[in-house]
């Protein structure tokens, strides 16, 4: 099933039998079950929030679920600006800015490369282009572990190992299969006669891309952007492998702060830090709604 189909189906109104009176036993069971599951899914978010607002004394006497008595924002301040990893004690803010500096170029480059490649595959096929596309798609199923070391070598040869740009390249590479697929499928659906008309009108490869195709395809750029923002922000493995400690993205730094063995465990700071790290993808999620679903439905193919 393609992403577009899936999205269309999600847009259709729900089916099944008609609802009866709101308090019929069937409905109580139905909504009861849904609410119980909702609690399971919401619990961690709740726990993160309450823990991050308590001070350590309160945590020691209570449990993870007890609401804060004295609300304090000190853990947030500490997580952001003072928490230590190794020798640095300037908090998660360093990781945050690293992640931003990784995210922005990775996002721009990976989406552009994928869009352009999808455009070639949809509108300017040449002999063998489908074969290369097939190879690219297969790449989506190769476990990252298989490619970790070859990429170390490639980055070293390019002189990018350990730098932010190396990581940008890695993100671009691994983003290609799914995003190219996404763009290609979207562009294929544009009527062929439109391209013919544009060619008669004297537009070439780039003219058609920039003047005809891109203005028609904003939704798919948003979907691809959402996939990339969450994917790049949440990445841990590539961050550890391909960057030096001073360039570690937020997830890596978060893990180092929370799982560091030295010192007393400050659970409230840990939870504040965790929540801070989750904030970016959560914001994207809550604001993008249906488009996010479309994105992951598309990402579904990637596995």
């Amino acid at each position: 099933m393609t992403a577009a189909e899936m999205n269309m189906k999600l847009a259709v109104t729900p089916r099944g039998a008609k609802p009866r009176s709101p308090f019929a036993p069937r409905n109580i069971m139905l909504y009861g079950t849904l609410i119980v599951f909702s609690i399971y899914y919401l619990l961690p978010l709740y726990v993160m929030i309450v823990t991050s607002l308590k001070d350590m004394a309160e945590i020691r006497v209570g449990n993870v679920f007890s609401p804060p008595v004295d609300i304090t924002f000190q853990p947030w301040v500490k997580a952001w600006a003072e928490a230590c990893t190794g020798i640095n004690c300037d908090g998660l803010s360093r990781g945050f800015w690293n992640s931003v500096r990784i995210l922005i170029p990775s996002l721009i480059i990976s989406v552009s490369v994928a869009a352009l490649t999808g455009y070639v595959l949809a509108c300017w096929r040449f002999k063998g282009s489908e074969v290369f596309f097939g190879i690219l798609l297969l790449g989506a199923f190769i476990p990252y572990q298989v490619l970790l070391y070859p990429l170390v070598i490639i980055l070293r040869e390019l002189g990018l190992f350990g730098s932010l740009w190396g990581l940008v390249l890695v993100h671009t590479i691994f983003a290609m299969p799914i995003n190219v697929l996404l763009f290609r499928n979207y562009f294929v659906a544009i009527p062929e006669e439109l391209f013919k008309a544009a060619r008669v009108d004297g537009a070439g490869f780039w003219g058609i891309f920039f003047r005809i195709v891109i203005p028609m395809s904003l939704p798919i750029f948003v979907v691809s952007g959402i996939i990339q923002v969450t994917g790049i922000w949440n990445d841990f493995l590539f961050g550890v492998v391909y960057t030096r400690p001073e360039n570690y993205p937020m997830t890596v730094q978060l893990n180092n702060i929370v799982n560091s063995v030295q010192g007393v465990k400050e659970y409230n700071v840990n939870m504040a830090a965790t929540l801070l790290t989750g904030l970016v993808p959560l914001t994207v999620y809550f604001f993008s709604g249906k488009l996010f679903i479309r994105g992951i439905a598309a990402g579904a193919v990637k596995g």
Binding site: P191, E193, L194, K196, A197, R199, V200, D201, G202, A203
Partner: peptide, 14 residues
């Protein structure tokens, strides 16, 4: 196509 001195009209308007 653009240099052949032709104009074209398509079924789906395009």
């Amino acid at each position: 196509p653009s240099k052949r001195g032709i104009g074209m009209v398509f079924q789906s308007y395009a």
